[in-house]
Structure formats: C-alpha cells, structure tokens
Design a protein around this nucleic acid. Structure first.
Length: 490
RNA sequence: CGGGGUGUAGCGCAGUUGGUAGCGCGCUACGUUCGGGACGUAGAGGUCGCCCGUUCGAGUCGGGUCACCCCGACCA
C-alpha cells in the first residue's frame, strides 16, 4: 500500500526534506531560518550554477569575489539603499572572545570592540562600487561586466525555507557602462537570460516585466523581473535585473573620462537569482508522490532498480545494468544503480519518486528472459515494457520529452489560471482562488496600496510581452495604458 | 512586535479524576520474503522544552520563561 502523503497545500516539507533541512542551531541562538542544504539538494543548485554561469560567460561576463564584510559607512552612502536594507542587517561589533570570568564558556571581549562596525552583506552593491571607483577611469575600462557567486544575509522578521531564509546563496551581477542606453540594454539582456534559463532548465514559464515603483529594488531606477506561478496560484519572483541609473556611481563617485575628454558618471546595473529557485522548482512541479525534477537539473536522471529473488538473478541483472549504465554515461546521462539488498523494489520505486528522479528502469527475471526492461517516467507516472535494443536512444528521447512535458504542463496550468478582470468586486472574489489577474491600473501607488490592503494582492509586474491596450483602472476608473499582473505572492 | 497554535524516543503522535513513560514509523540482529511502500521474533532508544511553586507523589495542576509553527507588518 502506498503511504499517504500530505497535500502540498498542507506541507511541502515531506519532499523538501530530500534537499534541505532547517539548520539545527543551538537553543537560544538568535539566528533563525538558516538552512542546511543536503548533498542531493546542493547537487541541484550546482547544476543551476553551472548552467547559469555558462550563460553569463557566453554573454561576456566574468566572475570575481568581494568581501563578506562591509564597513557600516559604505551602506549609508546611497540613501534609498540604506532605507531598503538597514532594518535587516547582521552587524559585527567585536573581533575577539575571551574565557568567561565566572568559568562558564566564553564571552565577548569588551576590549575587542571594532572602531567601525561591519555589516554582513545583504547584497554587495556598496562594497563593489567602492571598488569599481578604483577600477574605472576611462571609457576604455567600460563596460565592466562582473558576476559573483556568494552567500548573503538578510535578517528577515519571518523566514521560510528556501523562499526567505536568513542566509541564502545567490549570484549577483554588477555592471558598469558608459551610456544609459547600454546599461538599459544590459538590464534587459539579463532578464531575458533569466527567462530562458527558467524555461529551458527549470521548465518553468515566467512572465517578464517591470516592477511598479513601490516594488522596486532599493536604489534602482527600474527593476525588471521574472514572475512564476506556483501550483497554489501564488506568484513567486524568481529573478530580478535592476537598472541603477547613476545612483551608485554618484554615491561612490565613480566617474570616467569620455572619448571627448569629459568626466561623466557611469551607468550601472545589478541582477541576481538565488536558492529561492529551488523553492520555485519544487512548488511548480511537485505532485503528491513527491518532487518532479526536470531532467536538465536532476542530479540523478535515471535510476535502475533490480527485481530479484535469488543472488543468481541479481548477478545477472547487475551485469545487464552495468552495461546499460555504461551506455547511458557515454552520452552524458547520470545514472544510479540501486542495488541495496535490504529493501524491496516497491519501496525503492516510491523512494526515487519522492526524490523526483525523471526516469526509472526496472529489470526482473521476466525481463531477463524476454530481453526487455520496464521504463517508468516520473512526470506522468506511466510505465512501459520495452526491448533492450537501442535503449540509450530511447532514454535520451524520453528525457527530452519529459523536460518539455513538465514545462508544457506548467505553462498550461498558468494559462488556465490567468484571467482578465475589469470589475474590482469580481477581482476581490476571484483573487481568493489564486492565479494571475490581468487588470487595468491607473498607475498610482495609492491605488496599488489600496488593492494590496484590501486583497493582499500586489502588482507582480507590468508585463513586456503582451500588446498594450488602453482601458480604465478597475478601482478608480481613471485611464490605464495597459493591463498589469496582480497576484498574491510568496 | 500584535493575533492564534504547539512543545513527550530520530520522525509523527497518544497519555483518563495527579500514582512505575506509551503507540506507529524508523533503527539494530536473525529468519522467512521479493514485478508497487513485506512479515515474524528479539533488542536499543526518554533529564516529558526550561525554571519555580502546590503535593506524600507532577507529563498531568498553578505561575513564569524559552523555542517552534501559522496569520499580519518586512522581504528575493
């Protein structure tokens, strides 16, 4: 009998547990909401990293690394940026411990107080721009296209595994350009890169657009984003790309000599995606049997499970499995042979489904006799017995098929849960069931605020890829240039 | 920081009017099993979140405290 699994609305943690657990920090520790990423979960993050990193490099970016600690004074140089992050910073005040005079453990050594406190980076704009000041003198130094893979800390009031942990891993790109247009182009290029990554690797369709003023990144002139729909109809911001204008250049005095010999401030962008993508992956695709991983990100793409009674049968199956594995590995498919002898095959089936392995190959005495294998696919849970001939080609095709199918399923779900609504009362009712709502909005923060307060829905983005059609704001009736996307979000 | 809830074995939970600490899963050993989460037998595993109080006696009653979860404010 299959074990009953909680519905995803109740609790994702059953299958989160394959990937990540909440950090078990000491009792009374002030740190909340840190996560331990388990090897299996980290392997998925590594695959994301590898592919994103390659895409960044293909578009002319290079990696660098900047310090974890940021002097407090750096953070105060860009006014809006301070406002945005000051409330959630971890601050280092001392640099030494000493034995507790009462003999119990250690205490902070009061004589080791830092002259200037250090902030654990919540994002690296400030320390990077104070460095760029020294790297940029001439238009010949531009554009400067740098990315960093790092951890950051944001002391959130409330944390949520994967979606809002206190410490998370991410990549942050920081670029400097000679012209406004070039910086805007970079901002667009990256948001489109993220869109492509989401589609082709995460198998998640996303809406590309711009944030409204109130949802904008602290210190940005314009924030572009990709927004994904989770299976409960809520939106998840999966990546952002900011056009920073000359705000940081002015705050950190980064000027360059133009070809004509004038001094000008550089134009900046910053952009990032984080381990939040892991949460997106899970919430977009999982079913009641556990995770469903897209083949391109699955640490194990094919698992092989033997079905046997005797050691002799097992030996024969293992020999066949070895041959199949070698064939699959030759074309770059990652394979796991599950030869644990203390578990029955049915248990293994369920376990690998919980882990989201895209394809399972089972082989038993019957298959040995007939020259067949049983192939099961995780996305549809269907299985079929096929001949062992051309197995590598079959599996390759199947993995591609699964990747596409997962994407199409998510796309269909989003389309079925996206609605055009013109009447605010209808909107208030329908928002309860989740989904994306394309509505007219008068463009004012006041109306946006009112809708948020009354419905908990926010403007996810002003979408780029829909034909703008004029209309009237669903709340105020004032003119609207185009529909924007409202949704409740994580 | 406001509102609600929960702390008992690795995990999930029960524990009656206060009277020797329980169940399921998991774990260890052996045996039988093996085409969708097997079964039997034997075993290991607990300062009942913490402190104070009431009592002959507290998992249970009272007071305090800490932590976690959910809903808000904040946010990728």
């Amino acid at each position: 009998m299959a074990k009953e699994v909680k519905s995803k609305e109740e609790n994702y943690s059953v299958w989160y547990n394959n990937l990540v657990v909440k950090a078990d920090l000491a009792e009374n520790s002030a740190v909340r909401g840190c996560m331990v990423i388990k090897p299996y979960g980290y392997a998925i993050w590594e695959k994301m990293q590898q592919n994103l990193d390659r895409m960044f490099k293909e578009t002319g970016h290079v990696n660098a690394y900047f310090p974890l600690f940021i002097p407090k004074s750096f953070l105060s140089k860009e006014a809006e940026h301070v406002d945005g992050f000051a409330k959630e910073c971890a601050v280092v005040t001392h640099h030494r411990l000493m034995a507790n005079p009462d003999g119990t453990g250690v205490v902070v050594d009061p004589s080791a107080k830092l002259e200037e406190e250090l902030i654990v980076r919540p994002t690296s704009e400030t320390i990077i721009w104070s460095t760029y000041k020294n790297w940029i003198q001439s238009y010949r130094d531009l554009p400067l296209l740098i990315n960093q893979w790092a951890n950051v800390v944001r002391w959130e009031m409330r944390t949520r595994l994967f979606l809002r942990t206190a410490e998370f891993l991410w990549q942050e790109g920081h670029t400097a350009h000679a012209t406004k247009d070039e910086a805007i182009e970079e901002t667009n290029k990256i948001v489109r890169l993220y869109e492509k990554f989401a589609k082709e690797y995460l198998a998640i369709p996303v809406i590309v657009g711009a944030k409204s003023a109130s949802e904008r990144f602290a210190g940005a002139v314009d924030t572009l984003c990709i927004e994904a729909m989770m299976q409960d109809g809520k939106a998840l911001q999966a990546g952002t790309s900011h056009f920073l204008g000359q705000n940081f250049a002015k705050a950190f005095d980064v000027q360059f000599a133009t070809k004509e010999g004038n001094l000008e401030y550089v134009w900046a962008t910053s952009w990032g995606v984080s381990t939040r993508l892991m949460g997106a992956l899970i919430m977009a695709h999982s079913d009641n049997n556990g995770l469903v991983l897209p083949p391109k990100l699955a640490p194990i793409q094919v698992v092989m499970v033997p079905i046997f009674k005797t050691d002799e049968e097992n030996d024969k199956i293992m020999e066949k499995f070895g041959q199949i594995r070698d064939g699959l590995q030759k074309v770059g498919i990652s394979v796991k042979i599950d030869n644990r002898d203390n578990l029955r095959s049915g248990f293994k089936f369920a376990e690998w489904e919980l882990k989201g392995v895209p394809v399972r190959i089972a082989m038993g005495p019957r298959d040995l006799e007939n020259g067949t294998v049983e192939i099961a696919r995780r996305d549809t849970l269907s299985k079929e017995v096929v001949s062992q001939d051309n197995l590598v080609e079959k599996i390759e095709a199947l993995l591609n098929n699964i990747q596409d199918n997962i994407y199409n399923k998510a796309l269909l779900f989003r389309e079925e849960n996206t609605f055009e609504i013109d009447d605010y009362e209808t909107f208030k009712q329908r928002i309860e069931d989740g989904g994306f709502f394309l509505c007219h909005w008068d463009g004012t923060p006041e109306t946006e605020e009112k809708i948020k307060n009354e419905t908990k829905a926010t403007i996810r983005c002003i979408p780029f890829d829909v034909e703008p059609k004029e209309g009237k704001c669903m709340v105020t009736g004032k003119p609207s240039a185009q529909r924007v996307i409202f949704a409740r979000s994580y």
